[in-house]
Write a protein that binds this DNA or RNA. Structure first.
Length: 978
RNA sequence: GCUCAAGUGGCGGAAUUGGUAGACGCGCUGGAUUCAAAAUCCAGUUCUUUCGGGAGUGUGGGUUCGAUUCCCACCUUGAGUACCA
């Protein structure tokens, strides 16, 4: 009987699919357990070995929980809207739906061959209309809601309207836009329908607002900070400017405090919670209003409000700084300063926010010519603009206290603005003093002599007295922009009447994505949906009709933006509970049964995107009574990335006068990617000595990623023949190859992110066909801790593969099964129970790498013990089955069992088999172990000490010295000091 | 810049409460088997050494009988930083 893994794996994968072994039911006697992976975006490149890492871990856990008697929900699906399919459509004209369907097919085939225990009957795809119907439905719910600060939750917009009708908005305590004008019930009554809609929009949880974006006029699109390199677009290198655009926003800021508090109730990693805390950025301080001094008599009075965490330093304010985009800038700038200010604003518009945050060394700014008045001293304070103040943070303006803040200090120094010292006994001639705890305020009128806490309280009190400020808690969390100028995303269920957005009734959902000729923005700069010809709403028949029919009476234009990638992923975990329900996102029964995700595994790169937005939607849906819990995932683990092992050679291109270029391909394992190295080592050793050196016009160095498929994994040798036949390297066929000193053509290895563009991708398909899925699963786990980043090295897989072969041989040889009914020996039982204990602890702690080692040790030991006892080997198989399910199923059925091993109970640990009578004590001197001694565990401390002191090696170590102290920890260690 | 994470043999990593550093595997070395190779099996493999031993977990300090583990400072690498998913 041979271990024919390809045959075995195909057989059991078929068995599981046909028998629906892993189908979860929505009600059960068993306790529920929900294990979820972050669903993948199906990219065109297919899976590489890094992708399944988290899936394997969650699959092991899901299988383990089934052994432990749980009703396990372990679904999978696709986050199938996204940019890459759209880019491909722009390039090739192929509809993104087709590309996406093809990619999903590949993903599914690849996932299936790894033997996951997914319940595929629950698959969802965010780009399916039957799914995004619910994305649109949630959007409508958000639109129809406002956030009541008094109840601290979202409520239906009708309750707000009722208040407006009866008493106006004076007493309304809501999360809403800034600067909403107050009105009475009578005012409300007198308003036109449009005016009312405008006001309500300022309260809704999703609303239209002007937002600053990175606009690239050439590409006709908005770019992510990520897509901008050195102020120009990554694609094409076109200029990018900051621009205001009307877009849908989500009022996530309403939930800032609850999102922060909720972190206390969930078991997510500390680092992830920390990122979310920072993202939410709660700071307690005060808002302060400064009056702007009028320049001319007829200028109407204006104020600047700022948020500060240090109201105690108010007497240290010597200037104010506005973000260059601040709306007051154009109003207050004097004619003399206008040119300078305009130039500065223009220059800032070209810089990305990240640039502005990261660059603290270059100080720049401009004086507006205007002055504000200090609220207490009434002194004039110059108003500057500076790009270190960001428009999106706080109010986009700061009161600058150079003595207490490094950036203000640097700014003041650079522009020769006076620095007022308001700290008692602190020297600020060299740098600012920002240590709150040690602060004693001086030179500050009524705050003199107070510490930070007292002074803060008093300053706020005094500001309130004069009506120029109040205590305030500020959150850095900004409302999330929800519009995308893309094609391949969820269309909004929105049409416009007289410019005001109207929701389509939920009964008419889904509003399906229209067909377009081109996936690019229109010539007039509208989003791709502007190309659609059938994209208007007939409000009588309630259907999408041709644009020609738009009359703005009954037929209106539809929204042209689409939703962002995070829309569909913000509630999919709920949809899995009841994925085919046509009437509800999921039935109440299903959600009451499954409640929330018990274990969620995915990448840490989603820390502040998906994971924050999804929590926000969950809280909102909880407020609306749609879902039963307000946090969707109890426990979350981040899997680390598997990195690629890239290969490099250095290609030197020498260009000649009147001659073709020549190439030298330097294949050495000691290359470095630096200009100095090229100029010194490479030039001196390989170029300067060349006979035709005199004719060289110029030299190009290309430190080039080489496709790892033409490199020997173990020896790092480059296969020159394959290189010459490779389509990528056809230019270099006639080049001169330069080897290592030993004559071998080697590559330089570097660990990088695994990516198609670096030619370092390892495809799991090859691994599965060469070694089997069980080997792949074990090896991915064996590589190291789940959370850690670690490089892939295919050569190492032979270790786990030969382990599986050894495991097989424990049960069977050429003559068939060799297991027996003999009673196990003491050693057999010790090995088994040691393994049960360790593996169970490991799985509970998500330490999957150490259990693979434990299996290896167990199989090595049982092999040495020549164990054939079924009483040992059957439970061992159950232990291994979550990790290597195919081989386990096969041997299990060979052993005569009819039912799948996945249904068997996990073996029970019995500590009695591990009881020891003696211990091999390490004997250390000054903390260094020098020898060991076997001693009985029931010896007293004194007996141990006596035995150790009598040992001749102890005398040897002490060399006649008298020990100062002897520490005996029974069962652990003996340490002799002296 | 800010925030977070990680640094242990040639490599991936182990040491779960402060108690024998390097488990397990890769690679390498030697041997067995073979016409040969693959596969398999056995032994060795942190460095250094005058073969007694000595040193050693990024660097420098501290706490402790004892530190990879706790504390302080620093260095290096990686990740996130609001429209990549």
């Amino acid at each position: 009987m041979k271990y024919n893994f390809n045959e075995i794996e195909a057989k059991w994968q078929k068995y599981w699919a046909e028998n629906q072994t892993f189908k979860a039911v929505n009600n059960s006697e068993k306790p529920k357990y929900y294990v979820l992976d972050m669903f993948p975006y199906p990219s065109g490149a297919g899976l590489h070995v890094g992708h399944p890492l988290g899936y394997i871990a969650s699959d092991i856990y899901a299988r383990y929980k089934r052994h432990k008697g749980f009703n396990v929900l372990h679904p999978q699906g696709y986050d199938s809207f996204g940019l890459p399919a759209e880019q491909y459509a722009i390039q090739t004209g192929q509809h993104p739906a087709i590309t996406t369907a093809e990619n999903i097919k590949t993903y599914r085939r690849q996932l299936d061959q790894i033997g996951f225990s997914f319940d595929w009957s629950r698959e969802v795809r965010t780009s399916d209309a039957s799914y995004y119907k619910w994305t649109q439905w949630i959007f409508i719910q958000l639109f129809n809601s406002w956030f009541n600060n008094d109840t601290n939750k979202a409520e239906d917009i009708s309750t707000l309207e009722a208040v407006f009708v009866s008493e106006g908005n004076l007493k309304v305590n809501a999360v809403c836009d800034d600067n909403i004008e107050s009105f009475s019930a009578d005012d409300w009554d007198a308003m036109s329908s449009e005016a009312k809609q405008k006001i309500l929009l300022q309260y809704r949880l999703t609303y239209l607002a002007e937002t600053e974006v990175n606009w690239c006029p050439e590409l006709g699109t908005v770019l992510a900070n990520d897509e901008i390199v050195n102020g120009v677009s990554e694609r094409g290198g076109y200029p990018v400017i900051r621009k205001k655009m009307t877009q849908w926003s989500m009022r996530i800021s309403a939930y800032a405090e609850r999102l922060l508090q909720g972190l206390e109730t969930i078991d997510w990693t500390d680092s992830l919670k920390e990122s979310q805390r920072n993202w939410i950025g709660k700071s307690v301080g005060a808002s302060v209003t400064f009056n702007v001094l009028p320049i001319t008599n007829n200028q109407k009075p204006t104020t600047i409000s700022v948020f500060t965490t240090r109201p105690d330093t108010i007497f240290g304010v010597s200037f104010m700084t506005l973000a260059p985009e601040h709306e007051l800038v154009s109003q207050i700038t004097t004619t003399e300063q206008k040119a300078e200010v305009d130039a500065y604003v223009l220059a800032t518009a070209k810089r990305s926010e990240r640039d502005r945050m990261a660059d603290v060394k270059t100080i720049s700014g401009a004086f507006t010519g205007a002055y504000a008045e200090h609220p207490f001293t009434k002194e004039p304070i110059p108003i500057w603009i500076g790009d270190y103040v960001l428009a999106g943070y706080g109010t986009g303006a700061v009161m600058s206290v150079p003595c207490g803040d490094e950036r203000d200090y640097a700014f003041a120094n650079h522009f020769n603005i006076p620095i007022i010292n308001i700290f008692d006994g602190v020297d600020i001639s060299e740098s600012a003093f920002s240590d709150k705890e040690k602060t004693i305020i001086g030179n500050s009128d009524f705050l003199n002599g107070m510490n930070y806490k007292k002074a803060t309280k008093r300053a706020i009190y005094e500001l309130e007295q004069i009506g120029q400020g109040e205590g305030k808690t500020n959150y850095r969390l900004r409302d999330a922009v929800f519009s995308r100028q893309r094609y391949w995303g969820e269309p909004f269920p929105v049409y416009y009447v007289k410019g005001m957005p109207q929701m389509i009734d939920a009964a008419h959902l889904p509003i399906k994505l229209p067909e377009v000729e081109k996936y690019l923005p229109t010539e007039t700069g509208e989003p791709p949906l502007g190309n659609a010809t059938v994209w208007a709403w007939n409000s009588i028949d309630n259907k999408v009709v041709s644009n020609d029919l738009i009359d703005n009476e009954t037929i209106f234009p539809l929204e042209l933006n689409t939703m962002p990638g995070w829309a569909g992923s913000s509630f999919y975990f709920n949809r899995y509970m009841d994925p085919e329900n046509p009437n509800e996102m999921a039935s109440k029964e299903a959600m009451d049964y499954w409640q929330d995700v018990d274990l969620y595994i995915g990448g840490s790169e989603h820390a502040t995107g998906h994971l924050l937005y999804a929590r926000f939607w969950q809280k909102f849906l909880f407020d609306k009574g749609v879902v039963p819990v307000d946090e969707f995932a109890k426990k979350l683990i981040n899997q680390g990335m598997i990195l690629g092992n890239s290969a490099f050679v250095l290609i030197v291109k020498m260009n000649y006068v009147n001659e073709d270029s020549k190439f030298k391909i330097i294949c050495r394992n000691d290359l470095k990617n630096s200009k100095e190295y090229f100029d010194e080592v490479i030039f001196e050793n390989y170029i300067h000595s060349d006979s035709s050196f005199e004719k060289i016009l110029d030299i190009q160095y290309i430190y080039s990623n080489i496709d790892i498929s033409i490199i020997n994994d173990i020896t790092n040798e480059l296969d020159i023949e394959k290189f010459k036949n490779h389509s990528l390297y056809s230019d270099y066929i006639n080049g001169e190859f330069i080897s290592n000193d030993d004559g071998k053509y080697l590559v330089t290895r570097e660990v990088e992110k695994m990516s198609k563009s670096k030619y370092n991708v390892v495809n799991p398909d090859n691994i599965v066909s060469d070694y089997g899925a069980d080997s792949l699963r074990l090896y991915e786990m064996f590589l190291g801790p789940l959370e850690q980043y670690k490089p892939w090295n295919t050569a190492g897989i032979t270790g786990v593969h030969s382990f599986l072969k050894k495991l097989w041989k424990l049960y069977a040889d050429d003559n068939g099964l060799k297991t027996t009914d003999t009673a196990p020996t003491k050693d057999n039982l010790k090995t088994l129970h040691k393994t049960i204990k360790k593996v169970e602890d490991d799985i509970e702690n998500f330490s999957f790498n150490t259990s693979v080692s434990t299996f290896m040790i167990a199989v090595n030991e049982l092999g040495a013990q020549k164990c054939t006892s079924k009483e040992i080997l059957e439970p061992l198989l159950v232990l291994i089955s979550p990790y290597a399910p195919h081989i386990s199923e096969e041997l299990w059925s060979q052993l005569g069992h009819e039912r799948s091993i996945s249904t068997v109970a996990f073996p029970k640990f019995d500590a009695n088999h591990l009881v020891e009578s003696s211990k091999n004590y390490p004997i250390s001197f000054n903390g260094k172990t020098r020898f060991t001694m076997e001693l009985s565990l029931d010896m007293s401390k004194d007996d141990i000490e006596a035995a150790v002191m009598a040992h001749e090696k102890t005398k040897e170590q002490l060399q006649g010295r008298e020990p100062k102290k002897v520490i005996v920890v029974p069962g652990k260690i003996v340490n002799i000091v002296g």
